[in-house]
Nucleic acid binder design. Sequence first.
DNA 1: CTTAAATGAGACATAAGTGTCTCATGAAAA
DNA 2: TTTTCATGAGACACTTATGTCTCATTTAAG
Lengths: 189, 189
Amino acid sequence: MKNVISKSGNTKTALFEAACLLFARGGTPSLADIATKAGVGRATLHRHFSTREHFLGEMAIWALKSLEQAGANASLKAKSFDHAFWLIIEALIPLGDRYHFLLRESQTLSQPKIKKSIAKNDAEMRKLIAHLQELGVFNAEFSPGWINAVVDGLIYSAWEQIQAGDLAPNGAGGLVRRTLLGGFGLNQQ
Amino acid sequence: MKNVISKSGNTKTALFEAACLLFARGGTPSLADIATKAGVGRATLHRHFSTREHFLGEMAIWALKSLEQAGANASLKAKSFDHAFWLIIEALIPLGDRYHFLLRESQTLSQPKIKKSIAKNDAEMRKLIAHLQELGVFNAEFSPGWINAVVDGLIYSAWEQIQAGDLAPNGAGGLVRRTLLGGFGLNQQ
DNA sequence: CTTAAATGAGACATAAGTGTCTCATGAAAA
DNA sequence: TTTTCATGAGACACTTATGTCTCATTTAAG
């Protein structure tokens, strides 16, 4: 019996990762573009996914699971809610392109299950933020929804700058943290 | 002789605004979708624009000019560089969808002139940010490039929340300002 | 009121992307 | 080494979007 971590699994992952990069550039890449970027034949893509919609649906599930896994792994190492939050951010930055795909592009899919999962994770994030506000980590003056939206944007911006070579990967988590906590002002409050 | 601010001008503007909204939803809308959203016939769109590429090019120019105009108008009222910056932000938030289109979607166009103009405006923004760092408004610890990227993200996030009804338009400018200057921490620096 | 301009609708042709299929090749498992 | 599985290439059919055109209608200007 064949090892389930097969080349098939590698092929799918290569396709999903290629698609993420192409979507991050803007526009809507064709299946042919995605296959080429992944280094596989278009026929191979069609062997694994019957339609474009099917491919994007599976991709969204893959992105969701890997992001949830990254978040869960980060939370396991946490010593506090505060710590957990920053570890999650750090874990999500390298996955900024698939995070962006999940929040932006996959919304056009008619996949209530995925939308539900995204909404659930979003609600959990806002809950954590609200809790951190109670703990005095975040200013309660701001709505958790707004802080959450800003966090999403920072994760993607950091990923983009790393991609462009303008930001060192190892320093990204700290940069996002300092940006979120202190802003860019000089103690003018 | 007909008034140049004609229905033709109104038709084009309706198409550009409709396209902005559709692009903001994610995905790549068809010309038929855009025409329908704008409330005009597809043949009419094709009378004004010979190809899809032509339409998107003209749209990018329109977006660029209106954003530049909004920025220039804001700068005229400014009493200082600091003041100018915040007035520009406030002016750009309601145009968040076309700002987003310009930065994201139009990058896929093969239009060096537009890319050049976008790069020029971007450089000017970073220059203003660097100047504000010298003035002590912004913390020089952060790169102007990073601050600029965060500003772009905040403008779009604010626009999205207004669109969704989660943020009052009149309070958006102040929210972005407080976010940028103070972050979400509680004076933990 | 008349004329001109703009537009809508829809048919048709073209182009691009998608989906299916077959044959051949390469890689991996038995 | 043989067999099985995965894949590549490319042809072909289908679908969708785009681009063109004509006729009719509406709107605006004279």
